[in-house]
């Protein structure tokens, strides 16, 4: 019960933050927040992970970006694609990108060409090799379905401070 209440409070706080930050004047609103994962131990001695504000971030620490998008219009949006560059000084953490109902692609050339992770390559010293998470410069989430009026979606990824 206690945990559930905490979740509700967190969710509410998060929603408020999202609304406060919301941008855009068209059909869609888009918000990004940066957080850290904090592990705490509850009264029963169980470890809990929760996302907190990224207050103290040191080299080697991971941060989590959560991108929330919402259709605030009366019309359905098609071909919805969210794009996020991997911020300067951060390295994308392999496998961390998440987005329900989306296909996730990556770019290693500054966002000019995208592909799913397994098909990306890098040419280094004249040799072609599979791209790794260290190579990624951009991430994008392609929604497989339309975003209905009033509907909301979320995309998320984790990155490590160099």
């Amino acid at each position: 019960m206690k945990i559930f209440m905490k979740f509700v409070v967190l969710a509410f706080a998060y929603l408020c933050a999202a609304m406060a930050f919301a941008q855009g004047s068209g059909h869609l609103e888009l918000t990004t927040v940066v957080q850290k994962e904090q592990i705490s131990v509850d009264d029963d001695g169980k470890q809990q992970k929760e996302l907190v504000q990224a207050a103290t971030v040191l080299p080697g620490d991971s941060v989590i970006y959560t991108i929330t998008f919402r259709n605030v219009s009366q019309e359905s949006a098609e071909n919805v694609t969210i794009t996020n560059p991997v911020p300067v000084n951060l390295t994308y953490e392999s496998g961390s990108a998440f987005g329900p109902g989306t296909v996730i692609e990556f770019s290693v050339d500054g966002g000019k060409y995208y592909s799913v992770a397994s098909e990306l390559t890098v040419t280094e010293n004249g040799e072609v090799r599979a791209a790794t998470a260290d190579d990624y410069t951009h991430i994008r989430w392609i929604m497989q379905n339309d975003l209905a009026a009033g509907a909301q979606g979320v995309a998320r990824f984790r990155a490590r401070l160099n």
């Binding site: 207050a55 098609e78 071909n79 694609t81 969210i82 401070l161």
Partner: peptide, 28 residues
């Protein structure tokens, strides 16, 4: 360290102007 996402979409098959998010920042 700053982060800004963008979203592209169409309405009625007409491409719309992409929307930029806020800039999320933390200080190292």
């Amino acid at each position: 360290v700053n982060n800004q996402a963008s979203i592209a979409y169409s309405v009625g098959s007409v491409p719309q102007t992409a929307v930029q998010s806020n800039i999320a920042t933390f200080r190292v």
